[in-house]
């Protein structure tokens, strides 16, 4: 029983990083009904800038964190300006492919900065372990869990208690009516994008400091994990992102424990596939989406 609980705990810990990533993804998808494949690579740009600074000058860790988040926001704004803002409503596929093209760009830019496969990254806690009775937890991951809960609470407050949130929700419901009400749709979307990238930047920084290293796989990893967690939890919903992230973490931890690392990924994809077929709206389903960030009737983000 104790190993089982320990594995579950481990899963929840790792899952909190997925949840954080999914939060940013859900914000973008919830508002734009578009998929930003460059989400992970934007985080990678921030992380690589932070790493570059860390290797060259060894600044305090908080400076690295600030640079990582700022870099991610800058890259996010670049992506929004190039791939989302100029393409009209209904150009969902073009936006997605365009964000993929920029993925290639951001990844190569990162590798030009730091060409090796992996580099050290500063840790927040020195990577120590804490014992809680029979269980072991890593404070790094507790920080991540706390960050995830704090950010989702802050995001919920932002959406439901501020003018910016009101505008954002109005745009999600009907962007024409929103603009006729005096809401600056383009600016609000850009702000939402920057915010999502900032959340991604924080997620990236926390994950890397827990791992104490950064690898060239970061971009793809962050996009895929964030996307899968969001899909498992429920499209574009904040509670869904958290539930999805934690569920993905637990599924991975148990299947890795039972069958090894290859089956870990297989299990995650299999669960995702079966879930999509049986319950396309994700665990928290459509109602959660509607309550969370609104969803337009027909999900026609696809072609045309």
């Amino acid at each position: 029983m104790i190993p089982f609980i320990q594995t579950t705990l481990d899963g929840l810990m790792v899952g909190s990083s997925y949840g954080l990533l999914a939060l940013g993804f859900a914000l973008i998808f919830g508002v734009m009904r578009r998929l930003n494949l460059s989400y992970g690579p934007s985080i990678m740009i921030g992380a690589y800038l932070g790493t570059l600074l860390y290797i060259k000058f060894g600044p305090p860790t908080y400076v690295v964190a600030i640079v990582a988040v700022a870099g991610s926001v800058m890259a996010g704004i670049y992506v929004e300006r190039l791939c989302f803002a100029p393409l009209g409503v209904g150009a969902g596929v073009a936006s997605m492919v365009s964000s993929f093209a920029i993925w290639m760009q951001l990844e190569q830019a990162s590798l030009l900065m730091l060409p090796r496969h992996s580099y050290p990254f500063p840790s927040l806690t020195g990577g120590e372990l804490w014992s809680l009775g029979p269980f072991v937890v890593r404070p790094d991951y507790l920080i991540m869990l706390a960050a995830m809960l704090a950010m989702s609470a802050a995001l919920t407050l932002l959406l439901y208690r501020t003018r910016f949130g009101l505008g954002l929700r109005a745009i999600v419901e009907n962007s024409l009516a929103a603009s006729l009400s005096g809401i600056d749709v383009e600016r609000t979307m850009l702000k939402a994008f920057a915010l999502a990238s900032a959340i991604g930047g924080v997620a990236g920084f926390l994950v890397l400091s827990a791992n104490q290293q950064v690898t060239a796989m970061l971009g793809m990893w962050a996009t895929l994990k964030g996307l899968i967690a969001m899909m498992i939890g429920g499209l574009g919903s904040i509670p869904g992102a958290i539930v999805g992230g934690l569920a993905l973490g637990v599924i991975e931890a148990h299947s890795q424990n039972l069958f090894g690392p290859q089956v870990r990924d297989l299990a995650a994809y299999a669960v995702l596939f079966v879930l999509l077929v049986l319950r396309p709206g994700g665990i928290l389903g459509t109602t959660a989406v509607r309550r969370g960030m609104g969803q337009r009737g027909g999900d026609r983000w696809t072609t045309t």
Binding site: M231, L235, Y269, L272, W301
Partner: peptide
């Protein structure tokens, strides 16, 4: 058969999950 009643992003991600699962199966 199971995926074609899905739409948009759900279909796209279902095909992604399938393809990645296939890739891992070939690894095994």
């Amino acid at each position: 058969l199971p995926t074609l009643r899905l739409h948009g992003l759900q279909f796209a991600i279902a095909t992604l999950a399938f393809a990645e699962a296939v890739r891992i199966l070939f690894e095994l």
